[in-house]
């Protein structure tokens, strides 16, 4: 039902990705959101788990979108006109990245040093690598980027944003519902920590 509450994604195992694909996605989300003094990295935050579960659902299958043909090339202003849904784009795109790098460097993405990984992703984003099987680098990178950010900033109920890490980093209080006592306190920091749809860890007896 569209009105049902969301169910908590539990990490562990992969529903869509193969082990090899999962390792690649974890490596990519850890470059898009690297661990540094501001936060943990995308892998630890659960971004790959988030993407894995999304690809098994309506998003992965494009089941809500208009998917009738004919599929014709369009202008950028007409939006994505491809026939492949996100699940298919991940399967093809991830395979293309590893095939390309093996051919060029003799290594997979996971085996590259972080600086080399960044250089590759930067080139892919800019359309400067020629990926096999017709995969368009900027389009697939855009999808990876969008989904990684969703996982990092969405409610932790979806498998990413572990311990509300991104919300703590920004100072976003999350699913709080009443700020009436702070509206007029202009230019003053909001004092309360964030809350998720499933509450706060200490409320569940799991510690903060």
């Amino acid at each position: 039902m569209t009105s049902d509450p969301p169910t908590q994604v539990v990490a562990g195992g992969w529903h869509f990705f193969s082990a090899q694909e999962a390792a690649l996605v974890e490596a990519i989300v850890d470059r898009i959101i690297p661990a540094d003094e501001l936060s943990m990295g995308g892998k630890e935050a659960g971004c790959a788990v988030y993407i894995d579960r999304q690809l098994m659902g309506a998003f992965g299958a494009s089941s809500r979108l208009y998917t009738q043909g004919p599929f014709l090339p369009g202008l950028p202003t007409q939006g994505y006109q491809g026939e492949a849904n996100p699940a298919q784009r991940y399967r093809t795109g991830l395979a293309a990245i590893d095939a390309f790098l093996k051919q060029r460097d003799g290594k997979t993405f996971v085996e590259l040093a972080p600086a080399e990984q960044d250089a590759f992703l930067t080139a892919m984003e800019a359309g400067k690598v020629d990926l096999p099987n017709g995969v368009k680098g900027p389009g697939f990178f855009g999808l990876l980027l969008q989904n990684t950010m969703e996982g990092f900033f969405a409610d932790p109920v979806y498998g990413g944003n572990k311990d509300m890490v991104s919300w703590r980093m920004l100072g976003f209080p999350g699913a709080r519902y009443d700020y009436r006592d702070h509206v007029s306190k202009h230019n003053q920091p909001y004092p309360q920590p964030p809350v998720s749809i499933i509450g706060r860890p200490e409320w569940l007896g799991k510690g903060a």
Binding site: S3, P5, R64, L65, Y66, A154, G174, A175, R176
Partner: peptide, 24 residues
């Protein structure tokens, strides 16, 4: 349908647009 326990869900309502007309 706009339950106060989980209405504040950006992914579901703003990004995936649960309440909107679906292009399908």
């Amino acid at each position: 349908d706009f339950n106060i326990g989980y209405a504040q869900d950006e992914l579901r309502y703003s990004i995936r647009r649960d309440l909107f007309l679906q292009p399908a």
